[in-house]
């Protein structure tokens, strides 16, 4: 049984869909190569005997790139309507803000030593 293509689109657009999805294939392939490359870089740089801040910043930036790459291409945000991105970003922003605020609040522990960035 071969189902018909995406019913959302008019029949005439079927070929266009196929072409579009073919293009996506290469995009996805490139993205995945990039993701693996970045993961490899991450795995290597944590062993670099250089200033921790450089390493940590690099780690942060690299994972952010990975994160954004996955949501932008794999999760179709690039091709979907803006609303999806906004919806997800509301969650991301509030969750990110909450995590940050919590980390800060637990640095302010008056009993303990100043633990600011002990981990990071």
């Amino acid at each position: 049984m071969i189902p018909s293509p995406d019913p959302r689109l008019p029949e005439s657009g079927h070929a266009a869909v196929i072409a579009e999805e073919h293009k996506k294939y290469f995009t996805f392939f490139n993205v995945s190569i990039a993701l693996i490359a970045i993961t490899a870089i991450e795995l290597v740089i944590v062993y670099f005997p250089i200033n921790k801040w450089i390493v940590l910043t690099a780690l942060g930036v690299l994972s952010l790139i990975k994160f954004l790459a996955v949501i932008w291409w794999f999760m179709h945000l690039k091709w979907d309507r803006m609303l999806c991105t906004i919806l997800f970003m509301i969650g991301m922003v509030i969750a990110g803000g909450t995590v940050t605020a919590l980390m800060f609040l637990f640095e302010e522990d008056p009993a303990g030593p100043p633990m600011m960035f002990m981990l990071f």
Binding site: I94, G97, T98, L105, E108, D109
Partner: peptide
């Protein structure tokens, strides 16, 4: 609604939070 997520610790003013918080 948005600010509602940024004020939770006002229920905890007596728990010994730091001055900045």
């Amino acid at each position: 609604g948005f600010l509602g997520f940024a004020v939770w610790s006002h229920h905890m003013f007596t728990t010994g939070l730091g001055v900045i918080a």
